[in-house]
Amino acid sequence: MSVEHSTTSNLVEIRDVYYSVGGRDIFQGLTLDVPRGKITAIMGPSGTGKTTLLRLITGQIRPSRGQVWVDGQDVSRLSRPALYALRQRIGMLFQNGALLTDLSVFENVAFPVREHTKLPEALIRHLVLTKLQAVGLRGAHGLMPHELSGGMARRVALARAMVRDPDLLIYDEPFAGLDPISMGVILRLLRNVNDALGMTSIVVSHDVDEIALVADISYILSAGKVVASGAPKALKEDQSPLVRQFMNGLPDGPVPFHYPAADYYSDLLD
């Protein structure tokens, strides 16, 4: 099979992917599509491999079987230079921001531009300040990462992720641990950036309510497969036990509340 793939309406296509680590199966025949220009949410209980899926899409790990197509290229078969060329069109927002600690906010946002282009300094400044203005932190451009709060760091990281106007913007748990104001900023930016710049976005999250506000399509993963997919509203009305448990935050159900253990009473009496 060739590395090239016909261009379709999907920017990312995961086809029958198997992946295991340390003897534990993470994916067992995972198949899903990320349509161009849409916001796709990947949801699921903890430990279902949501972040692993992002690592597969960005080529950090390779599946043991199956294909991961990003813009018509099989990521798992790309050489390092080809993978780096593809990654130049991908932006990623990490859960903790992952800002480079020895660079200021301005230099962090300018970093991908400086590394990949030879733009004049005035233009770089213009680009960086525009993106910082979009996340509301133009005034913080001189601060160092350790001077930022968690929410601010994530907004700077978002400015950095979108500074080169990527085709695909990936958000890893963008709402986790944010205050309501920062969360509102990220939510608004997610939708605006996607629509205004014609990007495709993948959001990994388990914040059901926030996802419902922005996602065009949601996938729920469990046991290494997609167990439900569709518009967030449709998923809210899905009657399958696992989807109901997840969407409504029920403590017990197909995903058990208790970690597997011996009988409670005999354990106490021992």
Binding site: Q60, A85, R87, Q88, N96, L100, P112
Partner: peptide, 22 residues
Amino acid sequence: GLMRATDQLVAMEIMAVDPFRY
């Protein structure tokens, strides 16, 4: 090691910057 632990090296990889170079 701390750059590894705080995802800075992975972030560079995703930005198509080889951490070996930088």
